[in-house]
Amino acid sequence: MNKKIWFEKELLRSSAFRSLSKWAMLVYLDFLRKRQMEPVKRARRSDEWVIKNNGEIVYPYSEAEKKEIGRREFRNAIDELIEKGFLDIAHQGSGGRSGDMTKYILDDRWKEHGTPAFRPARNPRRKDTRGGRGCSAFHAKQQKSPVTKSLPKKAVSSSKTDTPKEKSPTLSSDRSATPKERKKKITNHNDGENKAPSQLSLWSNECVTIL
């Protein structure tokens, strides 16, 4: 990695470079430090410098976090640099622990940014839609896990009793009446038995004399 960063005057004066956000500019400066420059001999012309490791430059999330760049800020910075023509993707990494990291190209499409000649990126960053896989899902799970563990258990309501619910009694058809009604029915049924015997008639077929 070079200790010095070389800028083109055209880059510093360009509207694309001056329109970069804070995080995009810092990330782009880190990419410039990762360049491996080498001269190319030209006949009857001054030497031209090219990027030897262009297309092989890596910049993982873990490195950005060590530089106190958040994951969201880093992701947005990469998208902005690709959109404005400073970067392109040579290889889209799969992430996770496989070590398959994304490799970037330092592009010069920024020279035509804002003009009809501007070309979009050949390989824009693909969003992770794997649902529960990759570094983003792992870090999201790590951030949610402390909150999940700290949730209190549901308190058992004091209104609930430990005894099983009483089953409602099933009454037969002949016992559907209330105790008072059953007592009343019994009373009416025995009226004939409890009633005092009626007064005998003054006249009787078996009697000859008058009582």
Rank of each mutant, 00 (worst) to 15 (best):
Thr163His: 07
His113Phe: 15
Ser94Met: 12
Gly132Leu: 07
Ser159Pro: 00
Val156Asn: 09
Ser173Met: 07
Arg130His: 06
Leu171Tyr: 15
Ala137Pro: 05
Lys153Pro: 01
Arg130Leu: 12
Gly131Cys: 03
Lys160Leu: 14
Ser158Ile: 02
Ser98Thr: 14
Lys154Gln: 07
Arg97Pro: 01
Gly96Tyr: 06
Asp174Gly: 02
His91Arg: 12
Pro179Ile: 03
Ala177Gly: 04
Lys154Asp: 12
Leu151Cys: 00
Thr129Gly: 04
Ala121Ser: 14
Gly132Pro: 04
Ser150Gly: 11
Arg119Glu: 12
Thr129Trp: 11
Thr161Trp: 01
Gly99Leu: 07
Asp107Val: 07
Gly114Thr: 14
Gly96Thr: 06
Lys127Asn: 12
Gly93Tyr: 12
Asp174Thr: 11
Thr102Phe: 03
Gly132Ala: 02
Leu151Phe: 05
Gly95Ile: 09
Lys160Glu: 10
Lys165Ser: 09
Cys135Met: 12
Lys103Val: 01
Cys135Trp: 12
Lys167His: 10
Ala137Gln: 03
Asp100His: 13
Arg133Ala: 03
Ser145Met: 11
Gln143His: 02
Ile105Trp: 04
Leu151Tyr: 00
Val147Thr: 08
Ser157His: 14
Lys154Arg: 13
Arg119Met: 11
Ser173His: 05
Arg119Trp: 01
Asp108Trp: 07
Arg175Cys: 01
Lys127Val: 13
Leu171Gln: 01
Lys153Asp: 10
Pro179Gln: 10
Gly134Met: 03
Thr178Gly: 11
Thr102Glu: 01
Arg175His: 06
Gly95Tyr: 09
Pro116His: 08
Gly99Ser: 10
Ala121Val: 04
Glu166Arg: 14
Lys141Ser: 07
Ala137Cys: 06
Asp128Tyr: 01
Gln92Met: 14
Arg130Cys: 03
Gly114Arg: 11
Gln142Thr: 13
Ser158Val: 06
Lys141Pro: 00
Gly96Pro: 07
Gln92Asp: 03
Thr161Ala: 05
Asp128Pro: 01
Thr129Lys: 12
Leu151Asp: 00
Ser176Val: 09
Phe138Asp: 10
Lys160Val: 15
Ser145Ile: 03
Asp174Leu: 05
Arg175Gln: 11
Asp100Gln: 06
Thr163Tyr: 10
Ser172Lys: 10
Ser158Trp: 03
Ser159Ala: 11
Lys160Asp: 04
Gly131Met: 07
Val156Ile: 15
Pro152Leu: 09
Glu181Gly: 01
Glu166Asp: 07
Lys160Arg: 15
Glu181Ser: 08
Gln92Glu: 13
Gly95Asn: 06
Glu112Val: 06
Arg97Asn: 13
Ala140Pro: 00
Asp100Met: 09
His139Ile: 14
Pro120Asn: 08
Lys153Cys: 00
Gly96His: 06
Leu151Val: 13
Gly99Tyr: 08
Gln92Trp: 03
Leu171Asn: 02
His91Met: 04
Leu171Met: 05
Thr163Leu: 10
His139Phe: 15
Ser172Pro: 04
Asp108His: 11
Arg126Ala: 13
Thr163Pro: 00
Pro179Leu: 08
Lys153His: 05
Pro124His: 05
Met101Gln: 14
Asp162Gln: 14
Asp108Gly: 10
Lys180Ser: 11
Lys103Ile: 05
Lys154Ser: 04
Glu166Pro: 13
Lys149Ser: 07
Lys154Ala: 14
Thr178Arg: 07
Ala140Arg: 02
Lys149Cys: 00
Phe138Leu: 12
Lys144Cys: 00
Ala177Val: 00
His113Asn: 13
Gly132Asp: 04
Gly114Gln: 12
